[in-house]
Design a protein around this nucleic acid. Structure first.
Lengths: 123, 123
DNA sequence: GCGATGGTATGACGGATATCCAACTGTAGG
DNA sequence: CCTACAGTTGGATATCCGTCATACCATCGC
């Protein structure tokens, strides 16, 4: 059998919370963004450098895969991951797009305490 | 001195990871979806019934507010929250839309009010 | 076969988080 | 003034998560 992957869930079983939880991490979000932004697939460890340990990357890749976001293809001793874009777009329209449409770093416009716009909600 | 009001951040300071982390929870996602889905605002505690404790709801509302997703307006002894829709749409185009686009939850639908298995300690 | 390389598995650990409970603050109404 | 109500605060707890480190397995090149 074609051993593509071990535990890749059916897209129908993937909930939005699953996806959001998987993507609610700087490194994993970056991976998904990079994957969605033109790059079809990427090698697992060697070409991603986030300054974290090897096993940490494995953990993140596993999290993404188990959340239904990526597919892991084993090719020899190098593993590559791909975004399950079509399935995700069908299940969660616009989500991946919105995730990729990053406005980048916070364009911090200083307002200072008291210069708060809009209303002033107490707490 | 520190203002107690720094709970609602400037939209420019809100990162996508912040938003995603805030929304990566069943209850909070449900709140945001309901808020975005036509309901302009909702009372804080009395009209949201997820089967969790009052203070837990306060915690969730606070998390949403501190993540920059909602605005809390105090009106007498009842507090209401509103989605910061315009700002969020400007900063993260399509994100809220994608979050609310419930194309279906065929497998498992988390029907919030009334139908939740309450007794679930921990996470 | 053997060593080097790419990636996984397991275990430990510190920090974050979701939840509950009890006590508290502040407002509305009689 | 006093009670009922809406929501917050603080503590306690249990779980989960991200990270590292070591050990382990599989493949490639010689």
């Amino acid at each position: 059998m074609a051993r593509e992957d071990d535990a890749m869930p059916d897209i129908a079983d993937v909930t939005m919370v699953d996806v959001l939880r998987a993507v609610a991490d700087p490194i994993r979000l970056r991976i998904v963004q990079t994957l969605a932004d033109g790059l079809p697939h990427g090698k697992c460890g060697t070409h991603w450098d986030f300054g974290v340990h090897k096993s940490t990357m494995t953990h993140h890749f596993r999290t993404l895969r188990e959340a239904g976001l990526t597919r892991t293809v084993v090719a020899g001793r190098t593993h590559t991951i791909e975004l399950r874009r079509d399935e995700l777009d069908a299940r969660f329209p616009g989500l991946i797009d919105a995730l990729t449409a990053t406005t980048g770093a916070p364009a911090r416009s200083f307002a200072g305490p008291g210069g708060s716009p809009a209303a002033r909600p107490g707490r």
